[in-house]
Design a protein around this nucleic acid. Structure first.
Lengths: 242, 242
DNA sequence: CGAGCCGTTGAGGGGATTCAAGCTCAGTGG
DNA sequence: CCACTGAGCTTGAATCCCCTCAACGGCTCG
């Protein structure tokens, strides 16, 4: 379901430029670096599709012609081991740029799946290439995104996949809190999803989440959301002697 | 100990250009994208320092003025948890580009330490910036490096830090084999180092390595090296039912 | 030769997994 | 309206794998 964002239809001249200018995530997104003049180069139509939870956004090994800026929602990157087990290797949220491999003509390195309902902007490779030629800031910003993704991936392997079960899960919850919207309500994945992130079993995840629920640090608010008390969680993290 | 590579001293004109042109890792390295003309822009002196094993190459949080291409050896990236435990989050080898944060004016995201004896080329940020302006391929190659580092980091967290102990260690050994020079002799880290990579204890690492040594898949050749039989290791990996 | 680091091996304990049962809740159809 | 169903979550009991603690041997180096 590809749906141009509303503003596009109403704009009289340089329609996409105005759409992007009015975009809520513009200053967080790749084109935040574009000035007025740069925005006016945006004659190309930019699709703004949305995805239902658990819908695939792009698949590992496929060669794509666009990268995507996340406007809302959370995307999970997953791979499958030789033994058929799923591993979630990273999450991305609002303002993050995903599928950058496309810019290099490389196939996507892993599956990207909508973890929640997700809205994105699809940026054709040709457009980004072109802008990169004229607008110096775009290239710089692109590299900044890559670096952010790299740092995020390394933090993930340091915080979410190592140490004791409670340590991993507390770090995961704090990460989820950081991904929350401005209402402060965090997305709480299924137990199985969290298990595939932290390399644990669903039962183990359930035991710990239940415990923190009893202690008042996690208040599940179905569907799939929760109010997380970061202070308490951080406190629980400090109390661990790993 | 900063030591210009030998060729630099002997070259009559555009000395650095000729040094780089003759460089053994040139086609694997960042400047592999440079053509003859591009190389001749290299008037700047490029340092080619080397580091002893366990010597710090750059430190987390420090703001650097250069990135580095690895000419020989293995570099480990490490961080320390809030509880004071060391975690090794990635390895880099010959041809890899490290410290790219410097190009963005950002502080280094983690400690880079020479795992073996290491030789690098130090590339000043200003030089890379300048080349990026005129030589289109350099920017492209830079982004390719970033993507490679990202893929590597995610593979690391999927292969080396998750699953059972033997699974993690077998993946680690296969990775070490891939980092080996053309003599096929692999660097074999200390047990404690491997433990900090795979999030295990030194005793656990020792037990498994010893076992594979008895089975003939790992032949330690001190100091800190080994002949690894990839086929046998891969076979052992398939035999696991994780 | 003794000190210290590194690697190895054993014995015992603990935390995550495994297996299993029961629960909640939304959706469906009688 | 309510029984039925199935997916997801929770909890318990037993097992297993890795950790912890400990001792010892090989090696390098002062």
């Amino acid at each position: 379901m590809l749906m141009p964002i509303t503003l596009y239809r109403e704009a009289p001249t340089h329609p996409q430029a105005q759409a992007c200018q009015a975009c809520a995530v513009r200053r967080d997104a790749l084109f935040g670096a574009l000035d007025e003049q740069g925005l006016h180069q945006l004659h190309t139509h930019i699709e703004a599709p949305s995805f239902a939870a658990d819908a695939p956004i792009f698949g590992e090994g496929r060669r794509g012609a666009s990268m995507l800026t996340i406007r809302a929602g959370v995307v999970r990157f997953e791979r499958v081991t030789a033994q058929g087990e799923r591993r979630i290797v990273r999450l991305a949220g609002r303002g993050d740029l995903i599928g950058q491999e496309a810019l290099l003509g490389q196939p996507y390195a892993e599956d990207a799946v909508a973890a929640t309902e997700v809205e994105v902007c699809r940026l054709p490779v040709g457009l980004v290439d072109e802008l990169g030629q004229t607008q110096r800031g775009v290239t710089q910003e692109l590299m900044r995104r890559w670096q952010r993704a790299l740092a995020e991936a390394q933090t993930w392997s340091m915080d979410i996949t190592t140490g004791s079960a409670p340590r991993r899960l507390l770090h995961l919850l704090l990460r989820l809190q950081a991904l929350a919207g401005h209402d402060g309500l965090a997305w709480l994945p299924r137990r199985e999803e969290m298990a595939d992130m932290a390399d644990l079993r669903t039962e183990t995840v359930s035991r710990w989440i239940s415990r923190w629920r009893r202690e008042g640090w996690v208040e599940p608010l179905p569907p799939r959301h929760a109010r997380l008390h970061s202070d308490g969680l951080r406190q629980a993290l400090d109390a661990l002697d790993d």
